[in-house]
């Protein structure tokens, strides 16, 4: 056998000048069948042609087994090729699975597979798989490679497809943009304004009530006449303290506020005791 194989090419090389090596690989009596589980009869059976693919895609259901039997030939004579592969190609991704045919000495080859023999990636292909048969061997015989049929894999609709997790490959990752928390919101301005007005309205109400009850400032000239410095300083320091509080709210720091408040407080204390004694003297005089 081995001798023959080495002899043929040398003969061919000798004859190459005369005519191109015309010997080629092919197959005969190729039968494709799909057998369902349990029932003995084939669900589908057809003959394969060496020059044209089957018109309709072959359907392979979850429990089915696909079987191909053929006889490989070299120049019309049955012979065992070194390479007898059935390639199934996913037309979306170009991924390919290979099923070697077990070929006997006589050239009779056989391959059978079911869905569980297919890689996971091919099960989820959207298009039918393209089946190509390769028959080739050493030497100068022309190798055979033709598209012989399409295979439509129908996974079991009841069972979930086996999960395929993509392995880690270095590449661009998805962009992430931080989602900021929403800014704090206030209620409608109209409501705030209504309550502002309601609050501010209390001031005239208060003053009006006091006036109605007879409040007045009639002793102002008398008090200022009796203790002019202490009265003006005391009332001035009360106003100044409010001013300091306002500045503290607006932009002063605590350490700017405290000394100022201390000075004004001392003035209020000293002048207040004088001013209040004057108020007391008026009360003792029965004028209050």
């Amino acid at each position: 056998m081995r001798f023959l194989r080495s002899l043929i090419p040398s003969l061919l090389v000798l004859g190459a000048g005369v005519a191109d090596a015309a010997s080629s690989w092919n197959f005969d009596e190729a039968v494709i069948s799909v057998i369902g589980k349990g029932n003995t009869g084939a669900a589908f059976k057809d003959k394969l042609s060496d020059n044209a693919p089957l018109a309709k895609p072959v359907t392979l259901n979850a429990a089915d087994t696909l079987k191909i039997i053929l006889t490989a030939t070299e120049n019309g004579k049955a012979k065992r090729p070194h390479q007898a592969f059935l390639l199934l190609r996913d037309q979306d991704t170009g991924l390919e699975a290979t099923f070697p045919l077990s070929v006997k000495e006589t050239g009779k080859g056989k391959v059978d597979f079911s869905q569980k023999d297919l890689p996971v990636q091919l099960l989820s292909s959207s298009q039918p798989l393209r089946a190509t048969l390769l028959l080739a061997s050493f030497g100068s015989s022309q190798a055979f490679s033709n598209h012989i049929f399409n295979l439509d894999v129908k996974p079991d609709p009841n069972a979930p497809l086996p999960k395929y997790e993509k392995p880690l490959r270095y590449g661009k990752l998805e962009e992430i943009n931080h989602i900021f928390r929403a800014d704090p919101k206030s209620g409608p301005k109209i409501v705030s304004l209504f309550f502002v007005l309601a609050v501010l309205a209390t001031v005239p109400v208060l003053l009006g009530t006091w006036l109605y009850l007879g409040a007045n400032l009639d002793h102002l000239s008398k008090a200022v006449g009796a203790a002019p410095i202490s009265h003006s300083l005391f009332f001035g320091s009360i106003l100044a303290m409010e001013g300091i509080f306002y500045l503290y709210y607006y932009n002063w720091t605590l350490f700017e506020t405290l000394p100022a408040a201390g000075v004004v407080g001392l003035v209020a204390f000293l002048s207040g005791s004088k001013a209040l004694s004057e108020v007391q003297s008026r009360r003792l005089a029965g004028e209050r």
Binding site: V199, L200, T202, V203, L206, L207, W210, G214, A215, N216, L217, D218, H219, L220, A223, H231, F234, F235, I238, L239, E242, A275, V279, E287, R288
Partner: peptide, 19 residues
């Protein structure tokens, strides 16, 4: 409103003549 009320109260306390 509180500040206004307080200042007005101080003024009344100091200088209001009893009716």
């Amino acid at each position: 409103a509180t500040v206004t009320g307080w200042v007005a109260f101080v003024a009344l306390w100091l200088w209001s003549k009893p009716v």
